[in-house]
Design a binder for these strands. Structure first.
Length: 341
DNA sequence: AAGACGTGGTT
DNA sequence: TAACCAAGTCT
């Protein structure tokens, strides 16, 4: 691995960041709670997507205590549509733990913050550096892309073992001062200059340090294994409306896919399994294909009118207005939109 | 280590 | 259009 002038690399990067950094909502404040929220939302999610959610979330839960006191249903409702819903549930749980175990102050050591639910190696380093200027490495996809090019590293960044290597390199490159700006500068560079396809090397403040650039291989880095295509699941979805016009909905299990979200009842076996009415009682409403990262729902949506005798503790009969207060996955929001017509 | 875990935007 | 991607974490 090539040797670079670390001090010059740091000052080149920080100087560029000072002039070029984007004006983002979470860069206007240093409240550790707000930094934390932004980092959780930004996991696997684009800045443009996060911004409106971030604003709404902090309007509703302006402080750590406000979030800690909220009901999980409220938290999920604000998160609705953002995806990876366990992030919201874990954040909520972790915030309650900070309130109860740390006097409401987000911990400022690597050991303590890493114990919080949903706070992995990246988020720990990001919050510590950005909120507290603690020189802790925060290695995300941007950082691995930038550093794989700076040092011409051909390790597969999809492998967990690679992250540790980049973490060690990042730690070595971290300045004592301005750790938060440095962390953000590295990610910012990856997000706006050292992008995956057609990186803007001519605009890059650290091009002179870059091995891949010297060798002309920047387009071939980083190396990342392809992922498998998602498997397909056939699903019958039943929209049941009783004689009072209410809809039968159910809350998904507390673990796994879309945990804690609401939905219209599903059956993988076919629509007959949903109700004792048999197949003839159902009227076809629509078909919806919904793609997740690891699976595809092929949904056949049916509708019927039927009075429900008894509800389980995770089921409810709700009007359209009531149902819209609950958090539904995007696939089911499409169904709700149809019912509103 | 590898798969589960969402969604919307790009190419 | 189908594939790929984005400031990862958990099991």
């Amino acid at each position: 691995m090539q040797i670079i002038d670390t001090k010059k690399f740091q000052s080149d990067l920080l100087g560029w960041y000072d002039n070029e950094k984007r004006d983002l909502p979470w860069r206007r404040e240093r409240d550790p709670y707000r930094i934390w929220v932004s980092e959780i939302m930004l996991q696997q999610t684009k800045v443009d997507t996060v911004i409106p959610y971030y604003e709404r979330f902090l309007t509703k839960f302006p402080t750590l205590d406000a979030l800690a006191e909220a009901d999980e249903e409220e938290v999920l409702k604000v998160w609705e549509g953002l995806g990876y819903y366990s992030r919201a549930r874990n954040l909520h749980q972790a915030v309650k733990e900070v309130r109860d175990e740390y006097g409401g102050v987000v911990p400022s050591t690597e050991k303590e913050i890493a114990t919080l639910k949903g706070v992995g190696p990246y988020t720990a380093g990001a919050v510590l550096s950005i909120a507290y200027d603690v020189p802790a490495p925060a290695v995300d996809g941007n950082v691995m892309r930038v550093l794989s090019r700076i040092f011409s590293i051909y390790d597969d960044i999809a492998k967990p073992a690679s992250r540790k290597k980049f973490e060690a390199i990042t730690r070595d490159l971290l300045p004592e001062e301005r750790a938060g700006d440095y962390t953000q500068a590295l990610m910012e560079l990856g997000a706006v200059v050292c992008v995956l396809r057609s990186p803007a090397c001519l605009l890059c403040p650290v091009a002179e340090h870059c091995s891949a650039r010297k060798e002309g291989v920047q387009e071939f880095l980083p190396v990342k294994a392809k992922k498998k295509p998602p498997r397909s699941v056939q699903l019958a979805v039943g929209v049941v409306q009783d004689s009072s016009g209410r809809y039968l909905v159910e809350k998904r299990p507390d673990t796994g896919l879309l945990a804690g979200m609401w939905q219209f009842p599903h059956a993988e076996e076919g629509i007959e399994g949903l109700l004792e009415t048999g197949r003839e009682g159902w009227q076809s409403l629509t078909q919806i294909k919904h793609v997740f990262s690891h699976l595809v729902w092929e949904m056949d949506v049916y509708q019927t009118r039927h009075d429900i005798q008894s509800l389980t503790d995770r089921q409810a009969l709700l009007t359209l207005d009531e149902l819209k207060q609950k958090a539904f996955p995007v696939s089911h929001q499409k169904i709700i939109a149809l019912l509103e017509e």
